[in-house]
Amino acid sequence: MKKILITLLSAISLIYFLPSIAMAKDKTPPLVVVAHTKGLSGLSLWWANLYNDNMLLFTILTGCITPIAGILIGFITDYLLSLTGIDLTKRELAEH
């Protein structure tokens, strides 16, 4: 089981890294976008500064916040739908 898991994880990581290896071939310089912080304050300013200064942390936070937000909103909407009284556990599997 452990072997299968390791093989599976290695295969997934290899496939995930393939695009970056392929992109490394591309010699065109990437387009650099800078966030303008003028007029920003509070959280917006911190977020824009993070974008300009620490892209790794910006990426990790965006990559983590997005699914967490999805799950949270999903649970809330799931709860609200359950209040309607419809059965949310079963469905009939039929093509016609």
Partner: peptide
């Protein structure tokens, strides 16, 4: 990014339906 977020929601819902 928004597709990732909303797909989690619909995958969870579809999973509950089997």
């Amino acid at each position: 990014a928004h597709i990732a977020g909303k797909s989690i929601v619909s995958t969870i819902r579809h999973a509950k339906f089997g």
